[in-house]
């Protein structure tokens, strides 16, 4: 088997499709591209593919990662062109690299894509509905707090999460036109993380960030492990 890693986008057109649906869309794209894809065994064969950290509904991304396997080694430009041509609106192929499997004598295999993820960088934009200075102050106050708790309510359970443990860097604030732009560098661990939308909510409700929450847009710009983009880990 020949494994490849793709860096893909999730554009505005499809920001509202789920992680599972995104995987289905990619499976059909690979089939349309007529690549010699590898399948799982059994009655209901599926493409051998895996994804990195799932995105929340409504979030776009320049850093979606997918590993997939082919039964024949094709050259990178051929795969790149065929797959690009088969993608639906809303998904673009940015980079593609073969995954070099370590030799058996080197011991362990490549980690699962999901397990390589340690860090995500997000950009959040939202219309300013008040004073710029107040916005800056709100972010400063949040950044200097030692401990911040987020009360996460899901249909199954509710729990409190200490947020600051996941902040790799202070939140940065900037302005473009009427929009406030925040950059968040968040740690993603095996045991948990915090979502950019949750940080935004805290900034707004607890720290008084004067933005129109309902019109905020979030984009994942990077997904990293060991301080590098996932595409550079293979």
């Amino acid at each position: 088997m020949y494994k490849y890693r793709a860096q893909l986008t999730k554009g505005d057109e499809i920001r509202y499709i789920s992680h599972l649906d995104y995987a289905g869309v990619m499976e059909r794209a690979i089939r349309r591209a007529k690549l010699p894809a590898a399948y799982t065994e059994g009655f209901n064969p599926h493409l051998k593919m895996s994804f990195a950290s799932p995105l929340s509904l409504g979030v776009t991304s320049d850093a979606e990662y997918m590993d997939f396997e082919l039964t024949k080694p094709l050259c990178q430009p051929e795969i790149f062109d065929k797959l690009s041509a088969a993608l639906p609106p809303g998904i673009k192929l940015i980079k593609l690299k073969p995954v070099k499997e370590p030799k058996p004598c080197e011991g362990k295999k490549h980690k699962a894509l999901m397990a390589e993820v340690e860090q995500g960088i997000y950009e959040v934009v939202a219309p300013l509905i008040g004073d710029w200075d107040a916005a800056v102050k709100a972010v400063e106050k949040y950044n200097s707090a030692h401990e911040v708790n987020y009360h996460r309510v899901t249909p199954k359970k509710t729990r409190d999460i200490e947020v600051k443990q996941y902040m790799l860097e202070p939140v940065k604030i900037g302005m473009s036109g009427e929009w406030v732009k925040l950059t968040m560098n968040i740690s993603i661990t095996q045991t948990g993380s915090i979502k950019p939308a949750e940080i935004l909510e805290l900034l707004h409700t607890e720290y008084g960030l004067p933005v129109a929450l309902g019109r905020a847009l979030i984009n994942r710009s990077k997904l990293m492990g060991q301080g590098k983009d996932l595409i550079d880990l293979v």
Binding site: I14, Y16, P89, L213, G214
Partner: peptide, 21 residues
């Protein structure tokens, strides 16, 4: 449709189009 509308409904992709073909 504003994000706050699409975030509030079940299966928002019912309303966002842009499908292949």
């Amino acid at each position: 449709l504003e994000p706050e509308i699409l975030q509030a409904v079940e299966k928002p992709a019912r309303y966002t189009g842009h499908e292949l073909n």
